[in-house]
Amino acid sequence: MTTTPTDFARTAAQLKARRRQRTRLHHLAAYSVLVLIALIMLYPFYWTLITSLEPTGNIYQAKLAPSGVSLRNYAAVLSGTTVPFWRMVLNSVVICTVGVLGSVTFAALAAYPLAKMRFAGRDLIFYAILALVVLPNESGLIVNYVTTIKLGLLEQRGPVWDMITQYAAIVLPSIASIVGLFLIRQAYLGVPLELIEAARIDGAKELTIWRRIMLPLSMPTIAAFAILEFVALWNSFLWARILPLDPQMLPLSAGLLELSGTFSTNSRATMAGAVLVIIPILIVFASLQRYFMRGIEGAVKG
């Protein structure tokens, strides 16, 4: 028996069709798994959202749509009768702004000599900081608590002064970020030395070089770190829950736990609060996602 060219063409077509079918099956399987995981990841958020919108009904039931829609629970949270919600928004904004600006500025300043200057003790300092990452720090919370008390940051002296010192008590421990220092130093290392030397020869001050050359050329990394830091600060609650703060001074994430305590009879209001706490983070994350992922990868490599 001889095979003619048409036979070849036929088997080729069959093969191609079979392969296409297999790809289609493969895609179907992949999408089913993807959708299933997405459901597990997102349904708890969706459930919280729709339950927070319901005025009454069987609260903890599994559901796909709210049994009714009202903004009553949101009104209950926002009116501030149990927790000062708007004040907590303000607290979170202040803490995040000061925290991000402080940690970015301090890390960006400190990374410059570590990357581009020669001075006595540079390697010593670099490795000492590196060692801090590895050394156990389980007592960190305890000692920082003692430090905060001993610095008198929680003593009462007057309304305005108290406000400033309590903000400082919350935000100061998270300002010196080792991850940020390493990330930014890594970006600085990529700046060509000739550029800096040329500026030095032209008589530029180091601070000018830092501001005019190092910062602009490292902007993507600095932005990535700033976003990571913002999310971390917005989400942190433990430290603020442990400090004996005036309830008026709590940031949102910590305030939410306070809310779940005071609103234990009305969990729907707490759900409304949870939705309100997540929204800003989701907006930041969705719009700046690319920087964000870059920061995560850099932080682990660093």
Binding site: A110, L132, N144, V146, T147
Partner: peptide, 19 residues
């Protein structure tokens, strides 16, 4: 350049390990 960073690092990262 490093002073502000190192000051806070000493206070909130190094001191907890020692103390």
């Amino acid at each position: 350049f490093m002073a502000p960073f190192l000051a806070l690092l000493l206070l909130y990262h190094t001191w907890p390990i020692i103390f």
